[in-house]
Amino acid sequence: MSILRRNLPGVLVMGIPVLWIALFMLLPYGIIVTYSFWLKKYPTFIPAFQFGNYITIFTDPQYVLVFLRTLKISILVSIASFLLAYPFAYWLVFRCRSAALRTWLYMAVIAPLWVSYLLRAYIWKTILGTEGVLNSFLMSIGLIDEPSSLFLYNQFAMVVTLTYIFIPFMVMPIYTALEKIPTNLTEASADLGMGPWRSFWHVTLPLSLPGVAAGFTLTFCLSFGDFIAPFLVGGPDGNLIANVIATQFGAALNWPLGSALAIVMLIVVLTIVSLSDRMERKGLSGGI
């Protein structure tokens, strides 16, 4: 009794977070894992321990296709973000002379993160749609005569939208990594006979790889689990895993399969995160 009272603040400080994590994270994981082995028996599910759901995921072309599509979209989004973010971050860190401008531009890239994610995805609907900004613009300059429906409701629209939404997560780690590279390393490289391109290739790029890895991990995993963009701009054959999972828990009423899908998705994401973590650690031990 007195022990408890003496430790009460400690118990509260530690206890509430532990309880929170147990209740809202560990328990749901447990439930999902458990469900993923159950059997669907219309109209409900019966407890079981069998791998049928997982087998379905890896054999039914329908699910394999969604997985591959999600993989493809996520990879495209990561690559597009990288190709845009790296030169931009590089320019900011090494070429932008004015510190004020640098801060400003960096903030401009980060600021959209404070705007509702849903809103930012929705914006692209109004840009790419038949009534949208892009179509009006193309018509006004006479490139097309009537609105094109080619821009919206396809995978292209999804990649554009997701790249737009997640690019700050690529810019931030790359910017940080580049900023950490001491200028005297590039100077040393030049001193040792290397021109700007070769210095970049041999010194700057390798030393920024941990940032690139972090950026790829973030944008890939965020895209991999995205639910809104396919929903808003993806069109009929733009479903990603998250949408399929949602359907299993909703209309299809197949919680066991939905759970198994969620677990597979979780494993993919965790694998990527731990790989990149290992790479970053290695980068650090070899790092600055």
Binding site: P182, D191, G195, G286
Partner: peptide, 20 residues
């Protein structure tokens, strides 16, 4: 001339060794 075209070499104050 840029540094990479000069036949001089520098020992930097904090050495500037490539960590990778």
């Amino acid at each position: 001339d840029p540094p990479y075209k000069r036949e001089v070499n520098m020992v930097f104050q904090d050495y500037a060794l490539f960590p990778h």
